Structure formats: structure tokens, C-alpha cells
Amino acid sequence: MPSSPPDNLPIYRLLTGRDDEAFCRRVSKALELGYALYGSPAITFNGEHAVVAQALIWTRGD
């Protein structure tokens, strides 16, 4: 397993976006790559739709 994230991705990432299937798929893909959830998700409302955020950290190679 690689000791650093692929494609020059950072060790720490904060994914944000509309609370929808696409966001869930982005988080799922990061988990498949070797990232782990870091802390709890956050959610807010921007007046039109819910916006979520999830922090992730690289764990492969530990």
C-alpha cells in the first residue's frame, strides 16, 4: 500500500458540497483510496439547500 495519497492529494482533506448522493460518493471514494473519517460531519443551510462538510485524513502506510 502506498505511504502517501495518490495523485498528489493532501494528507488532510475537507470535502464540502450539497447534501446529496454525489457528496456521499465523493466521501466513499476517499475512504476506498485509504482516507479515514476525521471528526463528525457538519451541516448548514445556505438558504437554498443543505451543505455538508466531512474532514478526512490519510491512513494508509501507518
Rank of each mutant, 00 (worst) to 15 (best):
Ile43Lys: 13
Phe23Leu: 11
Leu37Cys: 13
Gln54Met: 11
Gly17Leu: 01
Ser4Val: 08
Gly34Ala: 06
Gly39Cys: 08
Ser40Trp: 12
Ala42Asp: 07
Ala50Ser: 15
Glu48His: 12
Pro2Ser: 08
Pro6Glu: 08
Met1Phe: 04
Pro6Tyr: 05
Val52Asn: 00
Leu33Arg: 02
Leu56Gly: 00
Arg13Gln: 06
Arg25Tyr: 11
Met1Ala: 06
Ser40Thr: 14
Thr16Pro: 00
Ala55Cys: 11
Ala36Pro: 03
Ser3Glu: 08
Leu14Ala: 06
Met1Lys: 03
Ala50Trp: 14
Ala53Val: 03
Gln54Ile: 08
Ile43Gln: 12
Ala53Gly: 08
Ser4Trp: 01
Ile11Glu: 09
Leu33Glu: 07
Asn8Ala: 13
Ala42Phe: 09
Val27Pro: 01
Gly61Leu: 02
Leu31Cys: 10
Ile43Ser: 14
Val52Arg: 02
Ile11His: 06
Leu9Ala: 08
Val52Gln: 02
Pro41Arg: 12
Ile43Cys: 13
Gln54Tyr: 06
Arg25Gly: 05
Ser40Phe: 12
Ala36Asp: 12
Glu21Gly: 04
Ala22Glu: 03
Ser3Cys: 09
Pro41Phe: 12
Leu37Gly: 11
Phe23Met: 08
Gly47Phe: 15
Gly61His: 02
Glu48Ala: 14
Lys29Glu: 14
Asp19Thr: 03
Arg13Ser: 00
Glu48Gly: 14
Gly61Gln: 01
Leu15Trp: 00
Val27Trp: 00
Leu31Ser: 10
Asp7Val: 06
Leu14Tyr: 03
Ala53Gln: 08
Gln54Trp: 03
Arg26Asn: 10
Ala30Met: 13
Ser4His: 02
Gly47Ser: 15
Ile11Trp: 04
Leu31Gly: 09
Leu31Arg: 11
Gly34Leu: 01
Tyr38Ser: 14
Tyr38Trp: 13
Val52Leu: 12
Leu31Tyr: 10
Trp58Leu: 04
Pro5Asp: 03
Arg60Thr: 05
Ala22His: 04
Asn46His: 10
Ala50Arg: 15
Trp58Lys: 01
Ser4Met: 02
Pro41Met: 12
Val27Gly: 03
Ile43Asp: 07
Arg60Pro: 00
Ala36Gln: 13
Cys24Lys: 11
Arg13Pro: 00
His49Leu: 14
Pro2Trp: 04
Asn8Cys: 11
Leu31Ala: 08
Asp62Cys: 01
Tyr12Lys: 09
Val51Lys: 01
Arg13Leu: 07
Ser40Glu: 13
Asp19Ala: 11
Pro10Ala: 05
Ser3Trp: 03
Ile57Glu: 05
Met1Asn: 05
Thr16Lys: 03
Ser40Asp: 13
Glu32Trp: 02
Leu9Glu: 05
Gln54Ser: 10
Met1Arg: 04
Arg13Trp: 01
Leu31Phe: 12
Glu32Leu: 05
